[in-house]
Simulated scan of single mutants.
Amino acid sequence: MAFIFKIIDNEDIESVIPLVEKLNSYKISYEILKKRFYEMIAQKNYECAVIYDGNKLIGVSGLWFCTRHYSGRSVEPDHVYIDEAYRNKGLGRQFFNWIYDYAKERGYEAVELNTYVSNAQSHKFYFNEGFKILGFHFFKKL
């Protein structure tokens, strides 16, 4: 199978929302997600990587680009989701290799991310990818 990995055009951003909704444990409405995605694009440090199987959108990962004092220029994959029918076939590794190459080509030197505590399957994947736990992600709604 030949999958297509690419950065989605900003005008097509709404096409990723159905996949993100499946990951969305907070049950945020489609309309709020739509509004937030357009705000994220407007910030100019966000891009959205996708996977297509032919014309079918099967995977998504937001990419946040920044510079941090401890890691230098880094990219943060966010809201990573691959359609359940395509899991456990090496596609996640292919996707992340594509992300690593894309980030390196742009001059980035590190990848960091957050994952839900309850998502044990993702923890195993990220450990296998060489990620280390550096701390805790704290959240407070204002």
Rank of each mutant, 00 (worst) to 15 (best):
F95W: 00
Y102H: 12
N97K: 06
G90I: 06
R68H: 13
H69S: 15
V80D: 01
E84Y: 06
W98A: 03
V80S: 05
S71N: 09
A85M: 04
I82Y: 00
V75S: 02
C66A: 12
R87G: 05
C66N: 13
G92Y: 00
W64Q: 08
P77A: 06
A85D: 12
V60E: 02
D101I: 01
R68V: 12
D83L: 10
G62R: 07
Y70W: 14
C66W: 08
C66D: 15
R93V: 06
H79T: 13
Q94E: 09
Y100S: 07
I82K: 02
D83I: 04
S61G: 12
R73S: 13
G62D: 12
N88S: 14
G62W: 05
T67Y: 15
L63W: 06
L91E: 02
G90S: 05
C66R: 13
Y86S: 06
H69D: 14
H69V: 13
R68Q: 14
K89G: 12
Q94F: 00
P77R: 03
I82Q: 03
I82M: 01
E76H: 09
K89H: 07
P77V: 08
H79V: 11
R68M: 11
E76K: 05
S71H: 09
I99F: 02
Y70H: 14
I99N: 00
W64R: 12
R87C: 04
S61F: 05
F65N: 04
T67P: 04
C66M: 15
V75Y: 00
R73K: 15
L91R: 05
P77G: 08
P77F: 03
C66V: 09
S61V: 10
F65H: 11
A85T: 10
D101C: 03
E84H: 07
S71I: 09
S74M: 11
R73L: 10
F65M: 15
W64K: 09
S74N: 12
D78Q: 13
H79L: 09
F96N: 00
V60A: 07
G92Q: 02
I82P: 01
I82D: 01
W98M: 05
V60T: 10
L91T: 04
L63K: 03
K89R: 14
Y102G: 01
Y70S: 13
G62P: 07
F65A: 11
D83M: 08
Y86A: 11
S61M: 07
W98I: 03
I99G: 02
V75C: 09
I99D: 01
C66P: 00
D78A: 14
H69I: 15
W98T: 04
S71L: 13
D101L: 04
Y102D: 02
V75Q: 02
N88K: 14
I82G: 02
